[in-house]
Amino acid sequence: MTEETKEPKKIDLAEAMRLKLQQKKQNQASNKQGQNGLQSTKTLKSQNTKKPNNQRRRTGGS
């Protein structure tokens, strides 16, 4: 029995994914509760930062 406790328990892929998802949800829940009041909202930036391409106007079109 001592040999079995040293080796990690073999589980199938579905079980591993289920455990990983459960752990991820717990981490997200604890992060939400902990940082709810501490994190301030981000200031919004203008998303229209790309300048239009006016090469046709400059060169006279096709």
Rank of each mutant, 00 (worst) to 15 (best):
M1L: 13
T2Q: 12
T2R: 06
E3Y: 06
E4T: 14
E4G: 10
E4Y: 06
T5Q: 06
K6R: 05
K6F: 00
K6I: 01
K6S: 09
P8T: 02
P8N: 00
K9S: 05
K9P: 09
K10R: 08
K10M: 01
I11L: 01
L13S: 04
L13T: 15
L13Q: 08
A14Q: 03
A14L: 13
A14W: 03
A14R: 03
A14K: 00
E15T: 13
E15L: 07
A16Q: 01
A16C: 04
A16H: 01
M17P: 04
M17E: 07
M17V: 13
R18A: 10
R18D: 00
R18F: 04
R18H: 05
L19Y: 00
L19Q: 09
K20S: 06
K20V: 08
L21E: 10
L21W: 02
L21T: 10
Q22E: 15
Q22L: 07
Q22R: 07
K24L: 11
K24F: 08
K24Q: 14
K25P: 03
K25G: 07
K25A: 10
Q26A: 07
Q26F: 02
Q26E: 11
Q26S: 11
N27M: 07
Q28K: 13
Q28P: 05
A29P: 01
A29F: 00
A29Y: 02
Q33G: 07
Q33P: 03
G34Q: 15
G34A: 12
Q35F: 14
N36Q: 14
G37E: 00
L38F: 07
L38S: 15
L38P: 05
L38I: 01
Q39N: 14
Q39R: 11
Q39A: 09
Q39S: 12
Q39Y: 04
S40I: 02
T41N: 09
K42D: 11
T43H: 10
T43Q: 14
T43K: 11
T43F: 13
Q47D: 14
Q47A: 12
Q47C: 08
Q47W: 07
K50E: 13
K50L: 12
K51Y: 10
K51G: 09
K51W: 08
P52S: 10
P52C: 09
N53Y: 03
N53I: 02
N53S: 04
Q55N: 13
Q55P: 04
Q55V: 04
Q55L: 13
R56A: 14
R56C: 10
R56I: 12
R56D: 15
R56T: 12
R57M: 10
R57A: 14
R57H: 05
R58C: 02
R58V: 10
T59M: 12
T59P: 07
T59N: 15
G60E: 03
G61R: 02
G61P: 01
